[in-house]
């Protein structure tokens, strides 16, 4: 190997976690939109990762309904990740999902790297009311240091999502958006994943808002430009729902 042949610089890892509600109420157009939007965002994430000298982006997905399951047993790079359509049925065990997420937010499992990691991004997608002990599960998760450092955003789908509870997951209302139609859901999944990954996978900018604050600021703009999307801090004036 010549002296000028170099190895790529070691990069940190930034794991993007999707925590996706696949309970019965998501059946039909909602789960369809989730399937389509995540499939479409993967190549965008791959491109951001490929051009980023600070970090490599990996993706993990936890689905919850009656119980919860990881789609793969380890985070995968955006280029490796293969999407298989999800179907919806069962309860909304978000509490259990929190406990499982906390288990994997650990250096022994999902956060294992040779070159360190940036704080992860957690994106929660849900349309309903948790059916298990969500407060108990979340309390446990809140002790996790990765969770504490993470960029956290939630997308609440439709009128039935309990935003007061979801807010407990993100830490504040500004980081919760509610969407009231399919197009808004798809668009927000894409923009939130891209923005949060872009910001989360770079060395932090000095003197600016923190990463969570930057993501929230961008989120506000996306919401303003999206018909049917509202910040949970400023919910829909007269909620009208187009879900089947």
């Amino acid at each position: 190997m010549g002296i000028l042949d170099s190895a790529p610089v070691p990069r940190r890892t930034m794991v993007l976690f999707f925590i996706v509600d696949t309970s019965g109420s998501m059946t039909g157009s909602k789960i369809g939109a989730v399937n389509q939007a995540i499939r479409e965002v993967l190549p965008m994430l791959d491109e951001i990762s490929a051009n980023n000298a600070d970090a490599e982006i990996k993706i993990a997905l936890l689905e919850f309904s009656s119980g919860c399951r990881w789609i793969y047993d380890e985070p995968k790079t955006a280029s490796e990740f293969r999407w298989q359509d999800r179907e919806a049925s069962g309860l909304t065990d978000l509490g259990e999902a929190c406990i499982e997420l906390g288990r994997k937010l650990s250096r022994d499992t999902f956060m294992k790297t040779d070159t360190g990691a940036f704080a992860p991004v957690l994106i929660l997608l849900t349309d309903g009311e948790p059916t298990d002990d969500f407060p108990g599960g979340l309390k446990k998760l809140k002790e996790n240091r990765w969770y504490k450092a993470a960029i956290k955003i939630a997308i609440a789908i439709g009128n039935d999502a309990n935003e007061e509870l979801i807010k407990e997951f993100t830490g504040n209302m500004e980081a919760v958006v509610e969407v009231h139609n399919i197009e808004a859901l798809k668009k927000l999944i894409r923009t939130v994943s891209v923005t949060a990954s872009q910001i989360g996978s770079q060395s932090s900018t000095v003197g600016n808002k923190d990463k969570q604050g930057q993501v929230v600021e961008q989120l506000k703009k996306d919401v303003e430009e999206t018909e049917g999307a509202y910040s949970a801090a400023k919910p829909a004036p007269d909620p009208n729902d187009d879900w089947d």
């Binding site: 940036f118 990765w146 450092a149 990463k211």
Partner: peptide, 11 residues
Amino acid sequence: VSCPCMTEENE
């Protein structure tokens, strides 16, 4: 590299 989570504070 042995800093597991490069939070903004750690950075």
